[in-house]
Design a protein around this nucleic acid. Structure first.
Lengths: 152, 152
DNA sequence: AATAAATAATTGATATATCAACTAATTAAA
DNA sequence: TTTAATTAGTTGATATATCAATTATTTATT
């Protein structure tokens, strides 16, 4: 049975680009002497953008599983970068906030991560970057629709 | 400190596209009643393309860690989809081959995975797809170079 | 040839992803 | 309003990713 070689498959390269951007982010964070993972950073960043959001809201925003969110949040609580409290009008729900330490760390990381983003886009124009973003959204939606379609 | 919202970051969308393509592959494989993961499939496919390759070669081809390869290979051995034997001229090295069962499974999966690939690219032209592949390679290389640069 | 360096595979530790099952709290329906 | 359904969070199980350290073997060096 004939098939494309792995290296000719577009999704394989999307995977590689994703993987290496994570690797490089990790390297930059580590070299700055900061002890958090890329996934922890993403949650910190999102909590900073939307203080008080719940774990489910965080899961939706980052497209992670609530169970995955919980475990990462527990690490962030342990590191005292995040604090958590029950929402007064709905005791099921936890509200998440950055601690002062967490906010300081986010502020320190932002310029580093901006540098990381720029590295990946070297040699690409702003229009190229826009096209890529647009196409990634399209591919995402193509799959997402097929997945959701089955649910209905 | 001002920064792009998570949803405006190109790498976030690359991550999402990657993640959903994996989700949909998983769904299709499961619906076909086949009990393997996407990562197991990628290794099977690569071993089928290059019979006799070693774990390190497999790690390089798929950009995975040798330790990760080992654990997935152990699962494939357990499922009797792959067989393994020491290379005669270098006892450190294992050669990997598909079993007959493994080959049958690969043949069965290929058309399913081709369908998955097509779903993701709906609404995109062949040229769009080529551009995406080219740019993902570029982004990959931009990061990879920075990472390797430090090693030298 | 003996020693040192490099390589392939392995193991252990930690972090993450996903799914299914479960509890507690809330909301909708009979 | 009592019951049923839904929702938020949690836990356990399994698979994967990454790093550091270890063993066995091979290759390079002296």
């Amino acid at each position: 049975m004939q098939d494309k070689k792995l290296q000719d498959v577009i999704y394989f390269w999307i995977h590689r680009a994703n993987s290496r951007s994570k690797d490089y982010s990790k390297k930059v964070i580590k070299e700055a002497g900061i002890d958090i993972t890329v996934d922890q950073w993403v949650l910190l960043k999102q909590i900073g953008e939307r203080p008080g959001l719940s774990q489910v809201e965080l899961a939706n925003a980052t497209f992670k599983d609530p169970a995955a969110i919980l475990r990462i949040v527990q690490i962030l609580l342990r590191k005292e970068l995040v604090k958590r409290s029950a929402r007064p009008d709905d005791k099921r729900t936890n509200e998440l906030f950055l601690t002062e330490q967490g906010q300081t760390l986010v502020n320190r990381l932002i310029p580093l991560i901006q540098g990381v983003r720029a590295v990946g886009l070297e040699g690409l124009s702003a229009e190229d970057a826009e096209s890529i973003k647009k196409w990634m959204k399209k591919i995402f939606q193509n799959f997402d629709q097929k997945i959701e379609e089955a649910v209905r």
